[in-house]
């Protein structure tokens, strides 16, 4: 095809004016796709037409624009269909999100409940430990006061032949007659037995009270106030007795003994 000749025929101008038959129009479109030169020429023609018609323009009356803009507003029906479409989509999204969130919250709540139970147990444990430590501290403070006080004298009680490794001591205030017991080493005894502390006063044993052995779980640590012993006490001793103690000591079970 001779492109120059084709252009010179004015067919592109006719095409741009929309004045070709269907068959001619399709032929031009085929040629346009095939020959870039034709495309370039058509663009030049169209641009010339655009400049020409812009220059030949005439302003329409006022109010025409408003009429046009008002008439292209989408119809309410279309809008409502769109709204329902969006509304349905939105509700589905909300529903799925809610289900997911509910599940997720329920899960978290379950987890939180479990952790809360754990934390409560832990808290109780810590409180118990704290109390124990506090009690220990109280006891140690008490013991320190007694041990450090010049008013108290320490009476060491050494193991007897029956219990050579046993050892305990009393802190004794002769003026106030107060007696505190401190155990260094005593053997474990049966559940139905208790240790009993004695003082020798005027050659006779005097009951100063009973206490549990170390393995019973309530074994004595620190210093413990026992019954008072008069200033003329000459010795202290510990025997193993049936639980609750006895009015007079069982000499065969004497563990430790110390003279003042």
């Amino acid at each position: 095809m001779d492109v120059r000749e084709y252009i010179s025929s004015g067919i592109l101008e006719s095409y741009a004016l929309g004045e070709l038959t269907e068959a001619e129009r399709l032929e031009v479109e085929r040629n346009l796709a095939q020959y870039p030169e034709l495309r370039k020429e058509l663009t030049a023609i169209e641009e010339t037409m655009e400049v020409f018609f812009m220059e030949a323009g005439k302003k329409p009356g006022a109010g025409v624009k408003e009429k046009i803009l008002a008439s292209v507003k989408p119809k309410t029906k279309v809008i409502s269909i769109d709204i329902w479409k969006y509304a349905t989509a939105a509700s589905l999204i909300i529903a799925f999100t809610s289900v997911y969130m509910a599940y997720s919250f329920w899960n978290n709540w379950k987890k939180s409940e479990a952790s809360l139970t754990e934390l409560r147990a832990l808290n109780e444990q810590v409180a118990r430990d704290y109390n124990q430590v506090n009690q220990r501290l109280d006891a140690i403070e008490n013991e320190m006061q007694i041990v450090a006080s010049p008013a108290f004298e320490r009476v060491m009680m050494k193991g007897t032949d029956k219990a050579p490794s046993a050892m305990a001591s009393v802190y004794w205030n002769r003026n106030s007659e107060e007696v505190y017991l401190s155990i260094q080493n005593l053997k474990t005894i049966a559940q139905d037995q208790q240790y009993q502390l004695w003082a020798m006063v005027d050659g006779k044993p005097m009951d100063l009270g009973v206490f549990d052995g170390p393995a019973t779980g309530t074994g004595l640590t620190g210093v413990h106030k026992m019954n008072s012993a008069p200033a003329n006490a000459t010795a202290f001793a510990i025997t193993v007795e049936p639980r609750g103690g006895k009015p007079s000591p069982t000499m065969e079970t004497m563990q430790v003994l110390g003279n003042t």
Partner: peptide, 17 residues
Amino acid sequence: LDYLYDHYSSALYGVIS
């Protein structure tokens, strides 16, 4: 459409009128 009208209404109305 607003833009289209502002730019082309005169040219098109010129043709029509």
